[in-house]
């Protein structure tokens, strides 16, 4: 008991300290003291995080640590929850995304999102990808739209598998294909950032490998932020990693460094499997 309370004390001593060893130059996304409240309950505490462009950044941490909450701040998906309130500042390319004048819809077009469970619309594969460009007016005419759908599907590595059944329902695809369809759908709105919320947790290993491969390709053109439960995945796909714990961003650095030489005690415990 005594020992237990000691370790507790050790943990409580430094909840607000954040260890950041790498300074990101010319970041795509900067966050300053981002806090999120659900009603009276605070879910995220003063997160400061600079995310580099054209790289994959992983957010890791145990369940309920706030990593998904932070992710959903970047495209203001938290706005859809009536009781959620976000304070602090998030900038994309030096533009404050919580600026009241900013149109959240345009933001979400620029910041694509892929969800935990593949959620294609119950429409045809073509319509799934074409929906975003249509509502944003990104394609001029039918041929333009078809081209955009094709390139998006190609970039998502799905084109060869579905080109013969482009008008069949997207819900008829396998789980991994569905998730790549969702990625194609996100790409189709010509975003610069893609957020992925545990994109492989509902997929089998082979499908996971394909999605990871895709992420590494997409990195060259997009800034990618991924929430993942799998530390192996974070190591495989990401250049930067941030560790979240009970609402705090505890440690942030190059992926290699976080996994091989974590500074914070809590990061060490998590990475080396002492809690989770």
């Amino acid at each position: 008991m005594v020992k237990g309370s000691l370790t507790m004390d050790q943990q409580v001593v430094s909840p607000e300290t954040t260890t950041t060893r790498s300074v990101v130059e010319d970041p795509k996304i900067t966050s300053g003291d981002v806090s999120v409240f659900y009603g009276a309950k605070q879910a995220l505490f003063d997160v400061n995080l600079d995310i580099p462009r054209y790289a994959v950044t992983s957010l890791i941490g145990p369940s309920g640590c706030g990593k998904s909450t932070y992710l959903r701040c970047i495209n203001r998906m938290n706005d859809t929850i009536p009781i959620a309130r976000v304070t602090g500042e998030i900038k994309i390319d030096d533009q404050d995304i919580y600026d009241p004048d900013l149109d959240v819809v345009e933001l979400r077009a620029r910041v694509g999102m892929v969800f935990q469970k593949p959620n294609p619309f119950p429409k045809s594969i073509f319509e799934n990808v074409a929906y975003g460009p249509r509502i944003h007016g990104l394609a001029k005419g039918k041929t333009d739209l078809e081209e955009l759908v094709t390139t998006s599907l190609e970039r998502a590595g799905l084109w060869d598998e579905v080109k013969d059944r482009i008008n069949e329902p997207g819900t008829g695809l396998s789980g991994g294909q569905q998730q790549r369809l969702c990625i194609a759908r996100a790409i189709a709105t010509k975003p610069d950032i893609i957020l992925m919320d545990e994109p492989c947790s509902a997929l089998d290993p082979i499908a996971t490998a394909k999605v990871e491969e895709l992420m590494m390709e997409l990195r060259e053109k997009y800034t990618i932020v991924i929430v993942t439960h799998s530390m192996a995945q974070a190591q495989r796909v990401s250049q930067k990693t941030a560790f979240f714990h009970i609402g705090y961003m505890v440690e942030y650095g190059d992926t290699k460094q976080i996994f091989e030489d974590p500074q914070d005690k809590r990061t060490q415990d998590y990475i080396f499997g002492r809690f989770g």
Partner: peptide, 14 residues
């Protein structure tokens, strides 16, 4: 506007 202006500058669909 849409045909005159460059891509993306129009806020809403016609």
């Amino acid at each position: 506007f849409a045909t005159g202006a460059s891509d993306g500058s129009q806020h809403s669909l016609s």
